[in-house]
């Protein structure tokens, strides 16, 4: 089930004008999340692009840019303090962070906050590298991608760690037996908003992973970011699903014939060096096929 367009409010909780690159999907996601959560929300923002571009009063809700790795700990303190003061029921507690802050530097803080059953919604906008510092690789950077710390050279071309070792955040979070987690994409806003709505009804931690192509870091034309995000789903590189009290369910219809991975890679400059290499493309296709099959097989 997804939200219907007429269920989406016209009320905006971001003021117009911000410092993001044109076609930034992270801003889009934050905007959509706030439409669902409404004005009674406190947003804690781990360091990243979003924290920087939201400065000078863009959000209309209380917005706290914390450190890179401590957003889950800060929201834990807020959750417990509001409980101690008898004010917890009045407000949604939201963390927004990137994949660097979530998969890498902030993973232990997030793990701790989930394990303590803190009551908050965590949205990770995954653009698969450290974009705020100019596009260095992260724990979620896909195999073969060019970043500024996995350059294309004569000896090594792009990210070369084994594809299986890329951090699967949904699996890591699911291993905590979290009450609610969802894999979402910026290209499916009604689905994303429905997942955020569901997360907001959970008493305890909930996690939303949002695949968010970065036009600047991935070298995509800014008119094509949403299209690229959709191609990720249509090729099976990203699968949309939710885990509700251990029940795993696909949230997007899977077409019988998936598009070849090349269609997802081709619009992205970060994979340009692979496009003329059929072997590499075939290898990436196999990586995606294996991941897709494994995710489908894991459904309840």
């Amino acid at each position: 089930m997804v939200m219907k367009p007429k269920q989406v409010t016209c009320t905006e909780h971001l003021n117009p004008g911000n410092l993001a690159c044109a076609a930034c999907t992270e801003v889009l996601g934050f905007r959509h999340a706030l439409k669902v959560l409404g004005p009674n929300t406190i947003a804690i923002n781990g360091t990243g692009c979003l924290a920087v571009v939201m400065q000078m009063g863009v959000p209309k809700v209380p917005h706290f840019h914390v450190l890179f790795e401590n957003a889950p700990a800060v929201i834990s303190g807020i959750d417990d303090a509001l409980k101690a003061m008898g004010k917890r029921d009045e407000v949604n507690l939201l963390v927004v962070a990137g994949d660097g802050g979530t998969a890498d530097i902030g993973l232990s803080a997030l793990s701790g906050a989930i394990e303590r059953n803190q009551d908050f919604i965590y949205i990770c906008f995954d653009n698969e590298s450290y974009m705020n510092t100019g596009g260095q690789r992260s724990g979620t950077t896909p195999f073969g991608a060019r970043t500024s710390t996995t350059p294309v050279g004569r000896a090594v071309q792009g990210e070369d760690r084994l594809p299986e070792l890329r951090k699967d955040l949904m699996a890591i979070i699911a291993a905590h037996n979290i009450p609610y987690a969802a894999s979402t994409s910026i290209a499916y806003p009604l689905d994303f908003m429905e997942r955020v709505r569901k997360a907001s009804t959970v008493r305890g931690p909930s996690y939303i992973h949002c695949h968010s192509p970065c036009p600047t870091g991935w070298s995509i034309e800014s008119s094509r970011t949403v299209e690229v995000a959709r191609l990720a789903v249509e090729t099976g590189a990203v699968v949309l699903y939710e885990i509700e009290n251990g029940e795993r369910r696909l949230t997007q219809k899977i077409k019988k014939k998936r598009k070849p991975i090349r269609e997802y890679l081709a619009p992205q400059g970060r994979f340009r060096h692979l496009l003329d290499d059929p072997e590499a493309i075939e290898h990436l296709q196999q990586v995606v096929d294996r991941g897709f099959a494994a995710t489908l097989a894991s459904m309840s």
Partner: peptide, 24 residues
């Protein structure tokens, strides 16, 4: 009071920052 049993000192003081920033 609520005792937030955090997973590190970095998170301990971070949680204090959160608590204090809502007035506790």
């Amino acid at each position: 009071a609520r005792l937030t049993k955090v997973e590190s000192e970095h998170s301990a003081l971070s949680a204090c920052v959160g608590a204090s920033s809502v007035g506790a």
